[in-house]
């Protein structure tokens, strides 16, 4: 397969970036898009050009490290897949593919396609944890959790923190990520102790990082490789009201 690639090149956070055009040949249809970028980088290195920097780690859709906006869609047009899970057979031979980094004021471009997602770490540090004594492993079923609650918590906990939700949101809002992290604890007994404090602090941190507000477009759910529902954002809002009214009592 042959592709024309338009790739965002930016030498550093302060530098001006631009889209550069590259031609690449002999692409195996079963390669992932990241493997194609590996080939491109070998080609660039041979040509004496600086290779394209991009984030990746597990390359099997579970770590949340990779993430590219491909032809205008975060993680590409395939649903429920991370960037590394995209195979070249999903693209039309001979076409142009435009690859850009996640764009949000809160995420500065480190280099080329790599962005700094540490705002997510700070949102987690603000309240995305439970404080518990870590002794020996507790007995299974010592804490009883209804199956429905366990499932709802798990549906939120599958978030891998890739930040595609922010990249896809027309407002660059981090609501889906923050909501998933709040929701998973709200269903579980272990999450009750810090429940009110958690939602208030995490929302506060999300706002402080400079993410936009949510407009309920739902693009986040559509690009989420784990299919996290925007109903979790509803849970975050209910949790917020709960914290607010709890304080008035």
């Amino acid at each position: 397969m042959h592709f024309t690639l338009r790739i965002w090149r930016q030498s550093g956070p302060q530098a001006a970036g631009r889209l550069e055009r590259y031609e690449i040949d002999d692409i195996n249809p079963d390669m992932s898009i990241l493997e194609m970028l590996d080939l491109l980088n070998e080609q660039l290195t041979r040509d004496g050009v600086e290779p394209v920097a991009f984030d990746n780690d597990c390359r099997e859709g579970i770590c949340g490290t990779c993430g590219l906006v491909i032809d205008g869609v975060a993680h590409g047009k395939k649903h429920l897949a991370t960037t590394c899970e995209l195979r070249m057979r999903g693209f039309v031979d001979g076409t142009t593919i435009t690859i850009e980094p996640w764009r949000a004021q809160a995420f500065s471009v480190v280099k080329d396609l790599v962005v700094d997602r540490s705002p997510f770490d700070r949102i987690i540090a603000a309240g995305g944890y439970v404080s518990a004594n870590v002794g020996s492993a507790p007995d299974a079923n010592e804490i009883l959790i209804p199956k429905v609650d366990a499932d709802l918590a798990m549906d939120a906990a599958v978030c891998i923190g890739c930040a595609a939700c922010v990249a896809a949101c027309p407002n660059a809002s981090a609501s889906l990520f923050t909501a998933a992290k709040i929701a998973q604890f709200s269903y579980l007994p272990q999450g009750q102790t810090e429940r009110e404090r958690r939602v208030v602090r995490m929302v506060e941190q999300m706002d402080a990082e400079g993410f936009g507000d949510c407009s309920n477009h739902g693009e986040c759910e559509a690009v989420c490789p784990k299919g996290i529902s925007i109903t979790n954002i509803g849970v975050m809002r209910r949790e917020y009201v709960r914290a607010l009214t709890g304080q008035l009592r």
Partner: peptide
């Protein structure tokens, strides 16, 4: 929050509203 936009933008479709 999105001071610089994308060169190409497209709809994700699927469950998007």
């Amino acid at each position: 929050a999105r001071s610089s936009g994308y060169a190409v933008s497209a709809d994700a479709r699927g469950p998007s509203r």
